[in-house]
Each structure stands twice: as structure tokens, then as C-alpha cells.
């Protein structure tokens, strides 16, 4: 099997390498990919959309429909992880730690309902005292990472960035919180329900902007129709529409990242992480 696979790989690779002979040279300005549509994008995008970052202009305006379903794909991935893994049954054993003394309670009967005060904390089975340096550094870093993520989303029109990138950075800050403290800290601060609602809300913002454009008498996602609704310079209305769409993308990606991480790392029980 292994040998057969190697032969298949070699044959496919040789075929592909043979095909590269016909490909344009590295950095050729007249390669077929760069002479048809891309010239129009480069020369006319600023005039038509007022957005200097061409990647954002193409992503959110010229190819806005594609990006909308891309966001839906991310939402569906989060949903699929939730549906595949989420396990609402209680774990058999539970551990509580008395914070002032460090005494650990081991509850073996899962059916027994145990009400504990604030001086006890529900803890992981293989708990180790958390490292002060890691906790402190991450606590200082996380707000800055989140502000940077918002900057990346908000400046997606003018500098490298956008909704997907900013959303991933924001989601990684939440994952950093879960790794440096523990998963319960993240789940306690941001409820599972909130993540679910935000993932749906992001897609809804995107679709909603498109539908509002239709109600204003234009095509789906034709941002120029939003001009009467937004005060300010009507020339920038396409840039503002793209910003709104990118914010929706950012929210959806953040929430989907967090849902995927939490469900995979705790096998759907939301109790113990890495």
C-alpha cells in the first residue's frame, strides 16, 4: 500500500512538473492571471469604491457574494463542531478545591447535587498550580491583542487587514486566555450561548446589510444604496458598507474559532481543557 502510494505520488508529481513548463515565469507581469480582470481592479477600484486596499475592495465588494458564503462556511464549521462533540452529560467524577487551604474534595457520585460556596472552585482532574509568570504575562498581553484585532478589522479598508484576519486574532486571544488560565475561566467569562449568538450575529450582519441594500432599491450588497441612511460624505458609502460587512465577518470568525477550540479541546464537555 505504501509502495503503491509512493508510485501514485511520483506519477502525479511528474505529470504536474511536466505541466509547469507551460506556466508563466516567476514575476512575469504579463502572466495570464494578471492581464484580464486584475488590471480593471487595480486601475478602477479606488475610483469606484474609494477603498485603497484592493484586496478588501475585491473581497467585500466585487466578490461580496462569495465572501458572504465564506462566512457562512465558517459558521457551519462551528455549528458542525458543536453538533458532533457537545456532550451535556455530567462527568462521573468532580473535583473541588478549597481555595484558602488547598484541600481537594473528590466527588465520586455524579448524581449527587453538591452546592459549593465561593471559597470552593471546580477544578480539573490533573490540576497543577498555575504558573504566576505565564498568567501575568498573558493577562497583560490579551487586551493589547484584542485592541490590535479591532484595529486590523477597522483598518481593513486602508491597510493590510480585514474581517477574517482580525477575527482570527481576536479568537486567538480568547484561546490564549483558555490556555494560560484554564478552559473554565474562558467559559465562565463568555458563556457558550454568547459565542453561538455572536457566530450567528456576524452572518446576520453581513446578510442584513445586503438585504437593506435590496430594500433601498438596489441589488443585493450594492452598498451605494445605503447613502441616504448614513450621514457623511456619500462618496465613502461603499467603504463604509465594506467596513460593516467586515465587522460582521470578524464577529462570526471570532465566535466560530472559540466554539471550535472549546469543543475540540474538552471533547464537548466544556470542563477541562489542555
Amino acid at each position: 500500500m505504501r509502495f503503491l502510494g509512493f508510485i501514485i505520488v511520483c506519477l502525479t508529481g511528474a505529470l504536474l512538473l511536466y505541466g509547469t513548463g507551460e506556466f508563466p515565469d516567476w514575476g512575469d507581469p504579463n502572466s495570464p492571471a494578471s492581464i484580464h480582470l486584475s488590471d480593471h481592479y487595480i486601475e478602477k477600484a479606488v475610483e469606484e469604491t474609494q477603498v485603497p486596499n484592493l484586496v478588501t475592495a475585491v473581497l467585500a465588494d466585487y466578490r461580496g457574494f462569495d465572501t458572504m458564503f465564506e462566512t457562512a462556511v465558517v459558521f457551519c464549521a462551528g455549528l458542525a463542531c458543536f453538533l458532533l462533540l457537545r456532550d451535556f452529560s455530567q462527568k462521573k467524577e468532580r473535583f473541588y478545591r478549597h481555595t484558602p487551604t488547598g484541600v481537594i474534595l473528590h466527588v465520586k457520585d455524579s448524581k449527587k447535587i453538591l452546592k459549593v460556596g465561593k471559597e470552593f472552585e471546580h477544578m480539573d482532574k490533573d490540576w497543577v498550580p498555575s504558573d504566576l509568570i505565564i498568567k501575568t504575562v498573558c493577562r497583560i498581553l490579551i487586551p493589547f491583542i484584542q485592541i490590535y484585532a479591532m484595529y486590523v478589522v477597522a483598518h481593513g479598508d486602508f491597510s493590510p487587514g480585514g474581517g477574517f484576519q482580525g477575527g482570527v486574532i481576536f479568537g486567538s486571544s480568547l484561546i490564549l486566555l483558555a490556555i494560560s488560565y484554564d478552559l473554565k475561566t474562558l467559559v465562565r467569562r463568555v458563556k457558550e450561548k454568547v459565542f453561538g449568538i455572536f457566530a450567528a450575529l456576524g452572518v446576520l450582519i453581513y446578510v442584513g446589510i445586503g438585504v437593506i441594500c435590496m430594500f433601498m432599491g438596489g441589488n443585493f450588497l450594492d452598498y451605494s444604496r445605503l447613502a441616504p441612511l448614513v450621514p457623511g460624505d456619500p462618496h465613502h458609502i461603499r467603504a463604509l458598507g465594506m467596513l460593516g460587512v467586515e465587522i460582521g465577518v470578524g464577529i462570526a470568525v471570532t465566535a466560530a474559532m472559540a466554539i471550535i477550540y472549546i469543543n475540540i479541546v474538552s471533547e464537548g464537555r466544556h470542563d477541562e481543557g489542555l
Binding site: Y41, L54, V58, L59, A77, V253, I264
Partner: peptide, 20 residues
């Protein structure tokens, strides 16, 4: 050319989703 960048931006997102 901005077009491959746009296509691959979305492809990265799809790869994260499929991987998850």
C-alpha cells in the same frame, strides 16, 4: 494582482473550517 490574494484569503478560512 489582488485577485489570487482574495481567493486564497477565503481558501485559508475554508482550510481552518475543514480542519476544525
Amino acid at each position: 494582482n489582488p485577485l489570487p490574494h482574495v481567493l486564497m484569503l477565503t481558501a485559508i478560512v475554508v482550510s481552518v473550517a475543514t480542519f476544525g
